[in-house]
Amino acid sequence: MIEVKDIKKTYKTGDVEFEALSGVSFTIKDGEFVAIMGPSGSGKSTLMHILGALDKPSSGTYFLDGKDVSILTDDELADIRKDKIGFVFQSFNLLPRTTVLRNVMLPLVYDGIEQKERENRAKKALLLAGLDEGHFLNLSNQLSGGQIQRVAIARALVNNPSLILADEPTGNLDSKTSEIVLATFQKLNKELGRTIILITHEQDIAEHADRILFIKDGLLEERATHIKKIASQIIKHI
């Protein structure tokens, strides 16, 4: 359960203040598949960093599973990321020259879990993410883009997180592999009840989610109103 209340984030460079988020509020229930969509510069990356406990809001509160994340220290945030959040990045960020299995086991290393248990959990996560067992001992740089992203999804799954955050996960993939990766997310959401937040700037990618939060100039717009706006613009043009 995610509860974001009136989150603001201001960056200061020299004398210039820039407000990336100007009061964002929403709630995401467990098991939802939500897309956060917006053009570049809209504040969606900033929102993703806050939701991913990589950054803290300037004001407002962020409750993740009933815990206020906005007031934690750096080390406590690291613990939240370790226990509750799984990341999937646009640029994959796998360790080079390292086997698929070790890449997926990496989050468990910081959790102090036994080697045997790590392997079991990593294999399970890899199968869930749709990677063949034959690739488990391959080095990460021997895989195709689609396979790499599935390894990254497995890595995001392995610590059993409350929330999977996917930041432009198909940005570096062709449309066919994109479909497969998005299908993987849908499967994880429908069959396993995972909460997934998909951050993207593309409409057709966002439409794979059940709900779309549209963000522009640091403010959230309900998807419905956005459609109305487009509709009214279309009507104007006619």
Partner: peptide
């Protein structure tokens, strides 16, 4: 790599 390690829960 350091960024990734931190993102998946590595402390300072």
């Amino acid at each position: 790599e350091i960024g990734l390690r931190k993102a998946i829960g590595a402390k300072r």
